Amino acid sequence: MNTMITSPRPVVRSNLDFKLEHIPRFWFANNPFRTRIFDALSLTFPDGERYFIQSVRQFRDQITDPDLQQRVADFIRQEAQHGLAHDQMNDVMRQQGMPVDRFIGVLRKIFKFELENRSAQYNIAMTAAAEHLTALMAHTFYQQQDTMREAHPFVRALLAWHAIEEMEHRDVAFDVMKDIAQVPEYLRKFALLFTTFMMFHFTLYRANVMLRHDGFSTWQRIKMTTQGLPWFLGRKGILSAMRRPYLDWFKSDFHPNQHPVIAQYQVWVDHLAQSQDPIAAGEAFWQAAQQGKRLS
């Protein structure tokens, strides 16, 4: 597995307005479980992106290649914009009575501990692994129209923009990890397993807490989880479709650019250039996705 695809260059886009203040409480198909799973994942992004930035910055002085220097600079600026956008999503959840600040407080303690007590190699490995996961999710969510069909267009547009920029910088942390940090193979492989476990553990935990704040009883939350989780992780679940590209990480010759860029990437770029409207661009991007059932 060594065929490389040229990834698009990172482009920093700022001041995009997704009108998140207008979304309904349960913005995904009026389904509390699906909504709160995505909300719980979104909660991680602002401080997660800042952790990624710090992890890459630890190696910035060691980078001599001008191309990688520029890609790192653009990566940092893109991640900063992602954090700001998802901060707005957090504000929406705060207004709904969610314990956002409690969640963020825990996250900040974890990331502070990791940066202060773990090696720079460890942190860049965790960052590269998380970027692999988010790039795969970005591709999976928008490869098929059915996946995000019932999501509110404003949130769908926010996640589409994030997906586009994940395509653009998916290789940056990986190249810093491999070429500059020279992370050993055992640590690189462990990082994805550990990151995956922590991401899904905290996402499910936060979703459950938010559903409790929504007023659902313990039994109702158990029922929602039992009925809703297969949509994500069942035999034909949207995240189950990631398993083959996910496992590619464990091949000794893996590089993110061996995976294709999402087919309708240029549709989003062109529509944003024409309309200057990220919601319209997100809608065009989603409309251009493949028709039909999700692949198992």
Score class of each variant (00 low, 15 high):
260 P>T: 08
26 F>H: 14
131 E>P: 03
213 H>D: 14
78 Q>Y: 09
79 E>H: 12
74 D>S: 05
269 V>L: 14
132 H>F: 12
47 D>Y: 01
35 T>M: 06
230 P>E: 01
166 E>R: 03
140 T>Y: 12
246 Y>V: 01
138 A>L: 00
31 N>A: 09
40 A>L: 06
163 A>Y: 05
99 P>E: 04
60 R>S: 09
66 P>W: 00
80 A>E: 06
10 P>E: 05
131 E>G: 07
193 L>N: 04
251 K>Y: 11
235 R>I: 07
253 D>R: 04
59 F>E: 03
265 Y>R: 06
296 S>V: 15
46 P>M: 14
251 K>R: 13
247 L>E: 10
204 L>P: 01
28 F>D: 10
38 F>Q: 10
80 A>H: 03
217 S>T: 10
117 N>H: 14
78 Q>E: 10
20 L>E: 00
178 K>G: 07
194 F>T: 15
226 T>G: 15
230 P>D: 02
15 N>Q: 12
156 R>Y: 04
81 Q>I: 15
141 F>V: 07
121 Q>L: 03
23 I>L: 02
80 A>M: 07
26 F>P: 09
56 V>G: 01
190 F>N: 14
112 K>R: 13
161 W>E: 00
110 I>C: 12
170 R>M: 02
55 S>E: 04
230 P>Q: 03
276 Q>R: 08
84 L>W: 12
285 F>E: 15
23 I>A: 03
54 Q>E: 08
212 R>H: 08
256 P>K: 06
208 N>W: 15
281 A>K: 04
55 S>N: 03
273 A>M: 13
90 N>K: 03
136 L>S: 02
122 Y>V: 15
271 H>S: 07
216 F>W: 11
61 D>G: 08
30 N>H: 15
244 R>T: 14
165 E>V: 11
94 R>F: 06
264 Q>Y: 05
112 K>N: 14
182 Q>C: 13
96 Q>C: 08
248 D>F: 15
167 M>I: 01
72 V>A: 05
240 S>V: 02
47 D>G: 04
92 V>Y: 00
147 T>Q: 01
276 Q>K: 10
214 D>H: 00
210 M>I: 06
209 V>H: 03
63 I>L: 06
148 M>W: 01
291 Q>W: 08
229 L>R: 07
97 G>T: 07
275 S>C: 09
83 G>T: 02
70 Q>A: 14
7 S>F: 13
243 R>Q: 06
14 S>L: 11
3 T>H: 10
223 K>R: 11
109 K>M: 03
42 S>T: 05
26 F>C: 14
46 P>L: 13
151 A>P: 02
245 P>D: 01
61 D>F: 13
147 T>F: 00
